[in-house]
Design a protein around this nucleic acid. Structure first.
Lengths: 167, 167
DNA sequence: TATTGTTATACTCTATAACTATA
DNA sequence: TATAGTTATAGAGTATAACAATA
C-alpha cells in the first residue's frame, strides 16, 4: 500500500457512521446464513424477532423498532402473511394494522435462535461477554442521546434547511 | 401499549445486529442532511472520505473499506468522475482501477467536514467525548474479532453449508 | 382536521453470475 | 490459471408524495 498514513487512517476508523456500518456488516455476515437458510431477508427477520417479544404490534411500532419504512413494511407484511408466519389481529382502532406471529412463525423464530446460538456464544467468548455488554449499552445510550438531540430541535443549520423543505 | 414486557424488550435491545442498525440509523440521520445538501449519496460520501485520507486507492480497497460491492462501486466511480470529483490514476497493473480525489473533490470533502463539525461537537458534548472514544474502539475491535472468526474457518454449521454452495 | 397505512413511482443498493482484460 | 473489474440482471430497500380510510 503506497500512500497510507497511520494518523489519517485512524480518522477513518473514528467516523461513527462508518464504524457502525462496517461492524454491522461483519456481524451480519456472521448471522445471515442462519436467516438465508430459511429464505428470510434481514428486515423480515427483524419483524419476526420484534413480534416474538411483544406478541402483537402495529405497523408504526414495527417500523420504528425495525428501522423499516412504511411502504417496505407493507410489502413485508404481505410476504410473511402469505407464508403463514404472521397474521393480522383485530384492533379497536380500525386504522391500525396489528399483527402477531402464528404458531408457525414462532416455531421458525425459535429454530433460528437455536441454530444461531452456538455462533453467538462463540462470539461472546472471543470478544468477552462483558465487553459485548458494555458495547450494547453504549450503542443504546448513544441512540437515546442522538434521538434527544433531534427532538430538542435543530441547533445546527442543515436540519433547519431540511425542515424548511429546501432540496 | 398493550402487551410489552420489560424483560422481553431488553432482549431486543441486546441483539447486536439490530442495535448496530438502529444506532447507525439515528446517527446517519444526524449527518445525512450535510451530505444531501451536496447531492451525494452515503456510499458516494464514504468513497470521498476514504480517498481524502489515502490519496489513491483501487476498487478492491475501496470496496472493502466502504462496504460497497464491486458493481455498485463501478457506478459510483462513473457518477463521481462525471461530476469531476475523482479521477483515474495510471497504475502499473493495468487491471487495477485506481482513483484519487480531484482538487474539486477535496474541496467538497473539506466543505462537508467543516459544515458538519458543529453537529459532531454537539454530539460529543452530549454523549461524552471519552465514551464516544470507548464506543469507537469497541466497535473496531469487535469488527476485528468477527473477521478473525470468519478467517479462522467456520466452526458452526451454516457457514459450511454456505461454502458448500447449498442455496 | 390529524393520523394510520397503502399505493405509486423512481432511484439506489444488494447480490450473483457471466464475461473481459490483464497478470 | 488466477485476479481485477465491468456488465447484466433480478430483487429488495430507500425515500417522497399522493391517496384512502378512520378517528
Amino acid at each position: 500500500m503506497p500512500t497510507s498514513c497511520k494518523k489519517e487512517l485512524r480518522k477513518f476508523e473514528k467516523s461513527l457512521p462508518i464504524s457502525l456500518l462496517r461492524t454491522r456488516e461483519v456481524t451480519m455476515r456472521l448471522f445471515k446464513p442462519f436467516i438465508d437458510d430459511h429464505d428470510l431477508t434481514m428486515p423480515q427477520w427483524r419483524v419476526l424477532r420484534a413480534l416474538a417479544e411483544d406478541e402483537a404490534l402495529d405497523a408504526k411500532a414495527l417500523a420504528e423498532r425495525c428501522v423499516i419504512l412504511p411502504p417496505s413494511l407493507t410489502r413485508i407484511f404481505r410476504g410473511l402473511t402469505q407464508r403463514g408466519l404472521i397474521e393480522q389481529v383485530p384492533c379497536t382502532d380500525a386504522r391500525r394494522h396489528m399483527v402477531r406471529l402464528t404458531p408457525e412463525g414462532l416455531a421458525l423464530f425459535e429454530q433460528v435462535v437455536q441454530e444461531s446460538e452456538p455462533t453467538y456464544r462463540q462470539l461472546a467468548d472471543a470478544f468477552g461477554a462483558e465487553r459485548l455488554d458494555t458495547l450494547l449499552d453504549l450503542l443504546n445510550e448513544l441512540r437515546d442521546t442522538v434521538q434527544q438531540m433531534q427532538e430538542d430541535g435543530p441547533v445546527a443549520a442543515p436540519q433547519m434547511r431540511k425542515v424548511a423543505g429546501i432540496r
